[in-house]
């Protein structure tokens, strides 16, 4: 069981007016679960991944895999599979040659190349030049490269980028399976609803700093406000009754005739409407989505939202 350990990691770019892309970051990516890596553009997600892989040098702090810096691993591709930038493959090579040189460098058998091509659905395109690949095919090739060494740790930067709906379902199932096999899986994304479908745990960055490192369920609960949706036969009485008891009720119903009550639970509203004899057709707690929880977290730090640097 191998994990990624990041300790006090800091990376500054530029000389005197140094900007901190990553600022004193500490967290661990545990095996056996998918860790969603969230944060706005420029929050330091990609920089963190590059530092883990030894592509950039940290200003201070360490990033290790199973206790060792990436550059000292004996079998890098068998230990970590990473997808950083699907555009980074040389366009003049065929997909197969791209995987062949990677496999050869780590002494992986050529059979693995055909296996990962098959697994990512690229077999028929393998002998074509990468220049002619669609964004989704390049993404699949990047994932194929990450899987090449059957690694214990996977680190994928926006893996669903450019994939079609079937591809998105495929990557979701792949990530779940890899974590289920006991691997440590770190997946960055800025698509919250997508991340919610595969992540068990979340690490959230803002301006290079750690904002949260919690199980996804806990994160959503902590950053969402209770809210109830109710459909009734007597909206006028419902509103009047609830407002009189101090709840906030939306001005209008939604398209399907549901009213939103903020700060309430279904139990509370159910009890009140029963007591008052208001007919209720539908009553449900509304769980916040990951997106809402994430936006709640980031707007809590209003200063942070305003100052988030835009990625260029």
């Amino acid at each position: 069981m191998t994990s990624i350990d990041i300790t006090n990691l800091t990376k500054e770019y530029g000389g005197r007016r140094a900007a901190r892309a990553v600022d004193g970051l500490t967290f661990r990516v545990e095996p056996g679960r998918v860790t969603g890596f969230l944060g706005p553009n420029g929050a330091g997600k990609s920089t963190t991944m590059r530092l883990v892989l030894g592509l950039d040098r940290p200003t201070s702090g360490t990033a290790t895999i199973g206790g060792r810096p990436y550059a000292t691993l004996d079998e890098p591709l068998r230990t970590v599979g990473a997808l950083l930038d699907a555009q980074a493959a040389h366009p003049a090579r065929t997909g197969r040659d791209h995987l062949r040189f990677l496999a050869a460098s780590n002494g992986l058998p050529a059979r693995r190349v055909d296996e990962v091509l098959e697994e990512t659905g690229l077999t028929s395109a393998a002998r074509r030049r990468i220049r002619g690949y669609s964004l989704g095919m390049r993404q699949r090739l990047g994932i194929a490269a990450a899987l090449l060494g059957d690694p214990e740790v996977l680190m994928l930067d926006e893996p669903a980028n450019g994939l079609d709906p079937e591809g998105i379902v495929w990557i979701r199932e792949l990530l779940r399976r890899l974590a289920g096999e006991g691997r440590a899986v770190l997946v960055s994304s800025h698509l919250m609803n997508e991340t919610a479908t595969f992540a068990d745990h979340l690490v959230v960055l803002g301006r290079g700093r750690l904002l949260a490192d919690v199980p996804m369920r806990e994160f959503i609960d902590a950053h969402s406000h209770p809210r109830v949706r109710v459909r009734t036969g007597d909206p006028i009485r419902l509103r009047a009754t609830l407002l009189a008891r101090g709840w906030t009720v939306g001005e209008t119903a939604d398209r399907d005739g549901r009213w939103t009550v903020e700060g309430a639970s279904a139990e509370e509203i159910g009890a009140v409407t029963a007591r008052e004899g208001i007919p209720v057709f539908e009553l449900a707690d509304e769980r916040a989505s990951l997106e809402q929880a994430y936006l709640a977290l980031t707007s809590d730090a209003a200063e942070f939202t305003a100052l988030t640097p835009q990625e260029v």
Binding site: G54, P76, A82, D85, A88, H90, N106
Partner: peptide, 19 residues
């Protein structure tokens, strides 16, 4: 230069991190 097109060097260094 094939290592510098589109950041291909990153792929090479991921496979062979000993520069």
């Amino acid at each position: 230069s094939s290592e510098f097109l589109n950041g291909a060097l990153r792929n090479s260094l991921m496979a062979v991190p000993r520069r």
